[in-house]
């Protein structure tokens, strides 16, 4: 389980965008707006995919 900090996640719209794209990528994940985090349940490859997806969404993800 890897927690990624997404500092620019501000609103429900951000959550919606992240959820949509990570779902499309087939990842097992959860998004927490209060903590501004995305938790990935999977291998390093999944984390890499998630970071790339976040980058495509305009977010900078940092592994905690």
């Amino acid at each position: 389980m890897t927690v990624i900090k997404v500092a620019d996640m501000h609103c429900e719209k951000c959550v919606e965008r992240i959820t949509k794209l990570l779902t499309e990528e087939g990842l097992d994940f959860s998004v927490n707006l209060a903590d501004k985090t995305v938790t990935i349940n999977g291998c390093q490859h999944c984390v890499k995919t998630a970071l790339e997806a976040l980058d495509d969404l305009g977010f900078e993800g940092l592994i905690e």
């Binding site: 609103c11 495509d56 305009g58």
Partner: peptide, 17 residues
């Protein structure tokens, strides 16, 4: 689909890349 300043920033970031 933009609702807040974070949205407009995100669009800027992805396009600038």
């Amino acid at each position: 689909g933009m609702t807040c300043a974070a949205c407009s920033s995100a669009v800027e970031r992805v396009t600038r890349k």
